[in-house]
């Protein structure tokens, strides 16, 4: 076992993990504002990637124009999803909402397949594809973009949730919807906001990974599940814990594939998920919740 091999596993794992983290945070933002797990989160990742390709290839928009357009359209899709599928629900029990998000994800995937076909497409990397060597291991410039953009987005999130009025209002909804409503916070608007933010974040994740993973109408399924896994490890917090969860998952997967067996790569991720749900349902870093009666 050489050192540079392990370093390569770790680096590959970190860059995949950053993507899981970004998708995972999307899950936890909606969970915290609404109490539902939005299983359509992976589809917004796919929309980000597919729309960028659509603007780039079919409408011939340059890449720096195509990306904002793709984020904007995905965000509108998230907004419509909340308005048309989540809000009209008469009895918003968690199980109903979860099933609706699963239905929504199948619908979005189906529409994407009809619109853009079943083919896989490649997107050009943002800044070349000459590998960068780091002590015997190599990464691509795109990996740096992924790590960088993830850090920036998490910083913005942190600022928004702790230093702006609407961010604080959203956190208030997360703690206690009824009380938040009583002090004059428009809870429904906050729910809408949470969908807008997380669909935009999902789209960004899809765009920055697309040059590495390629885009297809069904790319969101597995990425969504892995992101969900990251959010669970992080205890559904919309902060650092989920990021650590995502990175941990990425590194373990990569080490598992390299050192144990590549056939068990996905199994490793899901065994971790199951163990956590059994042993520490509050997440790796969270304290057990106690309910006051």
């Amino acid at each position: 076992m050489q050192f540079d091999q392990v370093l390569q596993y770790a680096l590959s794992g970190l860059s995949t993990g950053a993507i899981y983290a970004l998708i995972g945070i999307g899950f936890s933002i909606i969970y915290n504002a609404t109490g539902i797990i939005n299983f359509a989160q992976g589809e917004f990742v796919m929309l980000g990637g597919m729309l960028t390709l659509f603007f780039l290839e079919l409408l011939k928009v340059p890449i720096w124009g195509a990306i904002p357009c793709a984020i904007a359209v995905s965000t509108v899709a998230g907004l419509l999803f909340e308005r048309l599928a989540i809000r009209p629900l008469r009895q918003p029990t968690p199980i109903n909402l979860v099933i609706i998000t699963i239905g929504g994800s199948i619908l979005i995937r189906g529409l994407a397949m009809l619109l853009w076909g079943k083919d896989t497409h490649a997107l050009p990397p943002f800044s070349g594809d000459e590998p960068i060597a780091i002590g015997g291991a190599t990464i691509l410039p795109q990996h740096l973009w992924i790590l960088g953009i993830t850090i920036v987005i998490i910083a913005i999130n942190k600022f928004y949730f702790y230093h702006t009025i609407s961010g604080k209002a959203m956190r208030a909804c997360a703690y206690n919807r009824r009380a938040a409503g009583l002090v004059g916070i428009d809870v429904r608007r906050m729910v809408l906001f949470s969908f807008i933010i997380s669909s935009a974040m999902g789209a960004v994740a899809g765009i920055i990974v697309a040059p590495l993973t390629m885009v297809a109408y069904d790319m969101g399924v597995m990425l969504g599940l892995k992101g969900f896994c990251a959010a669970i490890i992080g205890g559904m917090s919309s902060g650092i814990a989920t990021v650590v969860g995502g990175l941990l998952l990425g590194v373990l997967e990569s080490l598992g594939a390299g050192l144990i067996s590549s056939g068990y790569k996905d199994a490793i991720a899901f065994i971790i998920l199951l163990l956590l749900l059994f042993l520490r349902p509050q997440g790796l870093f969270g304290k057990p919740e106690s309910e006051r009666v």
Binding site: Q8, S12, M219, M222, G258
Partner: peptide
Amino acid sequence: DDTYGPKDTDMTAQLTKIRG
């Protein structure tokens, strides 16, 4: 003798092992 999943997005781990 390594495998990868049909939906996998990164195979550097398997290739690193092969490189070794």
